[in-house]
Design a protein around this nucleic acid. Structure first.
Lengths: 141, 141
DNA sequence: GTCCGTGCAAATCATTTGCACTTCT
DNA sequence: AGAAGTGCAAATGATTTGCACGGAC
């Protein structure tokens, strides 16, 4: 398993590869994303960085840049808000999100391959998917 | 396969069961949803109904009511906009959406059962999922 | 007659854009 | 230097809310 440090370095390398500049807000954001045990919203990232440290707009713009660079994945949720997570190339998984407390856990299998194949057969290219599970966790029932 | 008429009646019955009133806008909306070959946005439903016929706010409020009544499903998309479709209890499937032209097609399998089971085993109740595939269709490539 | 549903206007929430200024490279 | 990134204010787009009126039961 790659260490956090390694993931961080690898993200930085990707930034360079895309000719994106290494700035303070970007380093801070990547650091957070690398350590995050679950996907975070732009708002959460912003406040976790510390009040007034960087602008929320900067967070949004960088998340967009990261997404285009393939460094992070954007996950639209039931509530309309998006979550962001580091694009973990080596392993693909999904989350179960509690509808009440928003607690989130990993589910480390993905069975969507069959559907993606179907889509390719229909002529679609660059097929990706967004899958989120929702439920009510034990302590919220 | 249930006819459109039957689906419509069944939706009306559900409305009654939930003690929701049968109004013009509701009938019109259900009629559209019953006939729709693909999930539609609130905006699309509103304009399809005809300009000035009913208020967009009414569309939103009714879609919310329908969702709570289990009559429709809400699907958050990559773009942040939500789509709505009749809750087809008998058969569960997903869609592939073209990133460029937004053309949408059904994929009539769902392999997520395994993940839902996993979530239940973790103690979650009322587990549901949102799965959308994205790609670029043949004519847009 | 009640209470729910509707329309209209205005509010809210997440996200985006314009512009002048600052910082990477 | 020159392009790319940032902050602040203001715009946008989707969805929600408040309130007075009208229609379903």
């Amino acid at each position: 398993m790659p260490s956090s440090d390694h993931k961080f370095e690898s993200a930085i390398t990707n930034l360079k590869k895309e000719r994106l500049r290494i700035t303070e807000p970007r380093k801070a954001l990547l650091q957070l994303l690398v350590e995050a045990p679950k996907p975070l919203s732009a708002e959460e990232l912003h406040t976790t960085l510390g009040p007034g440290k960087f602008d929320l707009v900067t967070v949004y713009r960088n998340l967009e840049a990261f997404e285009n660079a393939g460094i992070v994945n954007r996950i639209p949720t039931e509530s309309g808000k998006s979550l962001y997570e580091l694009n973990a190339e080596r392993h693909h998984y999904h989350h179960i999100i509690c509808r009440k407390c928003h607690r989130t856990e990993k589910l480390d299998t993905c069975e969507v391959a069959k559907l993606e194949k179907l889509a390719s057969e229909l002529g679609y290219s660059d097929v990706t998917h967004v899958l989120e599970l929702y439920g009510v966790c034990e302590s919220c029932q």
